[in-house]
């Protein structure tokens, strides 16, 4: 016993290297996409399988870190035997499935979805849109200039966020990020119904009166720039926002001990915004108010020699 008594001055000996339990073994599922056979682990989606084949499937409401809600329908594919098209992002691959990702039916639905969105929403700051529109020949102008839109003035009720819902395609990502998929604050939800459905705080109260904790995780997942950091919004308004002059550097948050990776976006020697990589095991792209906005102290007063 005595030889095993702890001795504080002696370093603790090395033990076995600890391991996480191995992931459950998953059977492989074989299916055919655009005539090519592909094998994916059980539980994979059609999107996973298509990506494995290098097939580029458009997505808007899908994000790796969020549960798929399959609402935008831009990823729909044609599944043999199915009456309707199916969403690639959420439909699980099943053995023997035969799928077409570029049939006339698929192209028509994708084009219509893009036209529906671009005719009702301001997609000018949505980075994916121009490419998709070109690929599918979308012509949102054809519904005429009187087509109803969700145009409305931006909501600027605090110094950190701008919410411009005239750019909102209702992809639900911000609601998911604010809710069960990350932050669990539930400051926003989908309210109303139909074309009037919109993202809202309770009673549409200003953000400053709501449950919002300004983690910015909603902004982090927004695909259209409807949600934007005030810093970026102001620079865009002033015409000084210039991504070609920006650098991105990964570093670690200067606040608490969790060790969140921050991606610092720098332009002209100043920090212009902070994000976090989606594939980072600590953050999964999420930050808190301090990580997201607490950087300002490096931009202001500095000490001097006495």
């Amino acid at each position: 016993m005595s030889d095993l008594a702890p001795k504080p001055l002696i370093p603790v000996p090395r033990g076995p290297v600890p391991e996480a339990p191995p992931p459950r073994k998953r059977a492989m599922v074989e299916l055919t996409i655009d005539g090519q056979k592909v094998s994916v682990p059980e539980g994979s989606t059609i999107l996973d399988a298509a990506r494995q084949l290098g097939i580029d499937t458009p997505t808007l409401c899908f994000l790796e870190t969020l549960a798929p809600v399959n609402v935008c329908r831009v990823c729909v594919v044609e599944l043999e035997g199915s009456r309707v098209l199916v969403p690639a992002c959420s439909r699980k691959a099943e053995p023997g499935m035969s799928i077409k990702t570029d049939s006339e039916r698929v192209r028509l639905s994708r084009r219509m979805v893009l036209e529906f969105l671009a005719s009702s929403v301001d997609v000018s700051t949505a980075p994916q849109f121009p490419g998709y529109a070109k690929r599918y020949g979308a012509d949102p102008e054809r519904f005429g200039s009187k087509a109803e839109t969700v145009a409305q003035p931006p909501k600027i009720d605090n110094d950190l966020y701008v919410r411009d819902y005239s750019k909102c395609i209702l992809c639900y990502k911000c609601v998911e990020a604010c809710g069960v998929d990350a932050q669990n604050t539930f400051a926003i939800a989908v309210a109303g119904r139909g074309f009037d459905a919109h993202i809202s705080t309770e009673f549409d109260t200003p953000l400053t009166n709501s449950a919002c904790v300004y983690c910015g995780n909603c902004i982090g997942v927004c695909p259209t720039g409807a949600l934007m950091f005030k810093s970026e919004y102001d620079m865009r308004q002033a015409g000084t926002w210039n991504e070609s002059r920006q650098t991105k550097t990964d570093t670690i948050c200067p606040y608490c001990g969790v060790g969140c990776v921050l991606t610092v976006h720098e332009q002209d020697g100043s920090i212009v915004k902070i994000t976090s990589p989606l594939d980072q095991s600590v953050t999964h792209g999420n930050l808190c108010i301090k990580g997201r906005f607490g950087y300002r102290f490096v931009e202001v007063e500095k000490p001097r020699k006495k």
């Binding site: 609402v71 979805v113 529906f116 395609i169 989908v190 109303g192 459905a197």
Partner: peptide, 8 residues
């Protein structure tokens, strides 16, 4: 209002 094809 959930999915785009129907909502719009």
């Amino acid at each position: 209002g959930q999915c785009v094809p129907c909502r719009v």
